[in-house]
Design a protein around this nucleic acid. Sequence first.
DNA 1: ATATCATTTAACTATATGGTTGAATATGAA
DNA 2: TTCATATTCAACCATATAGTTAAATGATAT
Lengths: 123, 123
Amino acid sequence: MKEETDILYYMGNQNENQLNEIFHALADPTRREIIHMMAQKERTVSELAEPFDMSLAAISKHIKVLERANLVKRNITGRTHICSINAESLSRASEWLRFYEKFWSNRFDILESELLKAKNREH
Amino acid sequence: MKEETDILYYMGNQNENQLNEIFHALADPTRREIIHMMAQKERTVSELAEPFDMSLAAISKHIKVLERANLVKRNITGRTHICSINAESLSRASEWLRFYEKFWSNRFDILESELLKAKNREH
DNA sequence: ATATCATTTAACTATATGGTTGAATATGAA
DNA sequence: TTCATATTCAACCATATAGTTAAATGATAT
């Protein structure tokens, strides 16, 4: 039986796969910079490519990785593709992290209160 | 000149490298499960390896990746290595994500209030 | 119709990753 | 000392990743 605290159970497997892709997408500094650019406003592919010393094809691939992770959505109008952040995926990763941050710090709170109780019993 | 909103500037380069490693470490489901186990209590390497259908050496490598990302710290006592979460790195990644979550949703708030103003002017 | 612009696709390369097995290291116990 | 335990290290393999260049697709503009 899984415990209530088992985030893996709570989240299910599809979500697990999505986390793989989200974190993998975020692990590349070029892709994070792309997200940074999109955070301010939507951008076309060539706008996103401009600051990088890298082929358009390479950026195209990076965007695809972000898309696969659902971090970016693309709006095709004519020949230009306009990319924007999908914050839902950002928050999925964010939630995962906050869960463990909190879990771990709770552990210390509990530890601390146990120590306190023990200390009180000494007297 | 960088803007105040430029988290990359604010964070510096060392931090950037750490983010690469943190997100990369988190992109693997085995490593996330290892973190999950450690969230409850500290664990030895073999304890961490036990639930996986994988060699100890493989888990040893996974732990090393987590260590390199500063997500895990190791306490060697005799021949057993006790691993625990280092929440500081978790929160570094968490901060990064929250920054962009917030940034993006602010963007919509601003957009919305602009639309509202525009609407009011119509009357 | 043709040239140009925005972007993707395909084929290829080098390197990184995640796993394996077998040997090495180092501590603990008999 | 000898044997077992906990863990790492080294060499290897298959696959994935991040980049390249050149060609293909598809929409605009002339």
